[in-house]
């Protein structure tokens, strides 16, 4: 449990709550014949979230800070994988499913543990080709398989 995270998140949720209350005012009241329009529910939710965030903010001042556990997080691995995942999402429709999946898997396998290139290569290739073949050929689904030139 981290006090700083709780502080930031309570402020963030407070802002989200405010945003909902303010923005819900702009939703038009057009539903005829009903006194309860589409804006009531989100507005209330926003208000409740504001109250809860204030409560959490108050709580962060009362509880004792726990000493963070001395575990070292593997940020480098994580960031390489998340960035390659973003690129994967970006490239999926551009270069097709098979190539982007293959590249993503190869990079992340090697990021998780260096070396042993051949098994990584084989598993990545088998997965990307296998899924594509099974899905689009056998089951007739549609996936952007390969780049269209």
């Amino acid at each position: 449990m981290s006090k700083t995270f709780d502080r930031y998140s309570s402020v963030a949720f407070l802002l989200i709550g405010l945003l909902f209350v303010i923005e819900s005012q702009k939703i038009s009241d057009s539903a005829y014949g009903s006194s309860v329009g589409p804006k009531i529910f989100p507005m209330w939710l926003g208000a409740i979230l504001i109250l809860l965030s204030l409560r959490l903010l108050y709580e962060t001042f009362t509880y004792k800070t726990e000493t963070p556990s001395g575990m070292k997080l593997q940020y480098k691995k994580f960031f390489i994988i998340i960035i390659s995942a973003v690129l994967y999402a970006f490239l999926l429709e551009k270069v097709g499913y098979v190539i982007s999946t293959f590249l993503f898997l190869l990079i992340s396998f090697q990021t998780m543990e260096r070396g042993r290139l051949l098994p990584s290569f084989v598993i990545a290739a088998a997965f990307s080709f296998g899924i594509y073949y099974l899905f689009s050929k056998l089951l007739g689904g549609s996936l952007p398989g390969f780049p269209v030139f």
Binding site: A85, A89, F90, L92, E93, F109, M112, F135
Partner: peptide, 29 residues
């Protein structure tokens, strides 16, 4: 080492195969 990236790849496949949008992939991440 193999399991974790494959779980990511399966979730990408699953979400894309149902939604067909890259928006959902970013939302997923």
């Amino acid at each position: 080492k193999y399991l974790l990236p494959i779980i990511i790849a399966i979730s990408f496949f699953g979400v894309y195969a149902v939604q067909y949008t890259t928006f959902d992939l970013y939302l997923l991440l």
